[in-house]
Computed example of a mutant assay.
Amino acid sequence: SDEELLLLLEMVNLPDIVGRFGGLDAELDWGKVLSVGEQQRLTIGRVLLAKPRYAMLDEATSALDIGNEEGLYLQLAGMSTTLVSVSHRPTLLKYHHQVLELPGDGRWQLHPTRDYRFDW
């Protein structure tokens, strides 16, 4: 419903997007009119709406400040969706149970998040 979509836009910190672009039925090239951070928040909103069993998030919050990142990941963590995040941000560790480390030489290692330390 429209009400659900408006609530979802508030949840991802995009409450003004409907007014800025002419309503919920606006058809635009969103990649040209939204900032990268707005695109990322909208994409997280789609995950929250679809409630998939799994979500692959590749640098999904790279253009966001830590406050927006935390707010979005807290909402994602409250779902029954299994999250797989690719990120260079250690701030995301607290939302995951394990870290798959790929050093780039064909090896890999799985670490419990509590034991993992970024080397850079």
Rank of each mutant, 00 (worst) to 15 (best):
A77H: 09
L8F: 12
L49A: 15
A26P: 03
Y116K: 03
V18E: 09
E70N: 13
V86G: 03
E4S: 13
S1V: 04
E27C: 07
Q75G: 05
P112R: 13
Y116S: 02
P90N: 11
R53P: 04
T91L: 06
S35Y: 08
D29A: 13
K32I: 06
V47K: 00
S80Y: 00
R53T: 11
P52Q: 04
V84N: 01
H96C: 05
K32G: 06
S1F: 06
L28G: 02
T91K: 11
L42N: 07
L49H: 14
N68M: 09
D2M: 12
V86A: 07
A55R: 02
T61A: 09
G104C: 07
L14C: 02
D29N: 14
Q109N: 12
R107N: 12
H111P: 06
V47P: 01
M11K: 15
M56E: 09
Y116V: 04
N13G: 10
K94M: 08
E38T: 07
G23A: 08
L6H: 15
E69A: 07
L74T: 11
L42T: 12
T82Q: 05
T43P: 03
A50Q: 15
V99G: 02
L57E: 00
R89N: 05
R20C: 06
L7P: 01
R41L: 08
